[in-house]
């Protein structure tokens, strides 16, 4: 018996078994959570649930304004963060040299990615809501979420740009193109799939976050659609938070339904990103 334990082959089997079990401990709950949300959420999922206003203090009716609010927020986030993020990635990939400034930018990006989401909420409250006097509004929320997803977009886009072969740039320059022409016509088009992937992932992140919108945009209960970017709005994640902790006697099914819509949105976004990545990996010819 003791000899068996000293046999490296046997040791290996035991260790691998434990590693496998550890992996199961992580993966099985994920599957269970998704299954639970789908099983219980799908019972309330209906056209009405998706397109109706909430009624009876959110204890009945649908989640339409939350879906609309989240869509507006996501759109606003991308409008703000996508150009800055892509340009920032272009700077890092095509213009910057290995120097202190570049390192500082990289550190700033790493740090932005690590700032707690609730701190983004404070920042958005301080800068956009109060200092710039946007009030709690879609605008303030979008800007806050935009700063939050910036590192996601920059990192993905930079990687995409750097994976474009150097020869494309050399060919373009050798044909008399300027630096910007080279980037615009010989580099960017071929980095687009990677940039798109980053954009979709940041979309899913912006749709799912709650803490940054708590004080910058979220309306507790607002059974009408926002009219302008200076309006407050409901949002899916905040709605789920409200339903599960702030309103007594809400049917659990409504919460599962909201969770299902939110998870569905996020999972679809991630699938789209994976498909884009996979499709272009196959198509890529260099």
């Amino acid at each position: 018996m003791i000899r068996l334990f000293k046999d490296p082959k046997f040791q290996e089997k035991v260790v691998f078994l434990f590693l496998f079990l550890a992996t199961l401990i992580i993966i099985v709950p994920v599957v269970l959570v998704i299954a639970l949300i789908v099983a219980r959420g799908s019972s309330v999922l209906s056209w009405e649930f998706l397109t109706a206003m909430p009624r009876m203090g959110m204890r009945a009716g649908g989640i339409f304004p939350a879906i609309v609010g989240t869509s507006y927020l996501v759109a606003g986030t991308l409008i703000f963060a996508l150009p800055i993020g892509i340009f920032s990635a272009i700077y890092l990939s095509e213009y910057s040299r290995r120097n202190a400034l570049t390192r500082l930018i990289e550190l700033a990006i790493v740090n932005l990615a690590g700032v707690p989401s609730v701190v983004y909420g404070l920042f958005g409250l301080g800068l956009f809501v109060l200092f710039l006097k946007f009030g709690a509004s879609i605008l303030a929320g979008s800007l806050t979420l935009g700063v939050m997803v910036l590192p996601v977009i920059v990192t993905a886009s930079r990687e995409a740009l750097q994976s474009v072969p150097k020869t494309f740039r050399e060919v373009s320059y050798s044909l008399g193109a300027t630096r910007w022409q080279t980037i615009r016509h010989a580099v960017l088009p071929h980095a687009l799939p990677g940039i798109l992937t980053g954009a979709v992932l940041s979309l899913s992140r912006a749709a799912g976050e709650t803490a940054p919108i708590l004080f910058t945009v979220a309306a507790f209960y607002l059974p009408r659609l926002p009219k302008s970017v200076f309006d407050q709005a409901m949002a899916l994640p905040y709605h789920l938070y409200v339903l599960s902790t702030q309103v007594p006697n809400v049917k659990l099914e409504l919460q599962y339904g909201t969770a299902l819509v939110l998870v569905g949105l996020v999972v679809i976004a991630n699938l789209v990103a994976a498909v884009i990545r996979g499709y272009f990996r196959v198509k890529k010819q260099w």
Partner: peptide
């Protein structure tokens, strides 16, 4: 990818 609010609720 699962939003933290969903995990919190579950």
């Amino acid at each position: 990818a699962i939003p933290s609010i969903v995990l919190g609720f579950i």
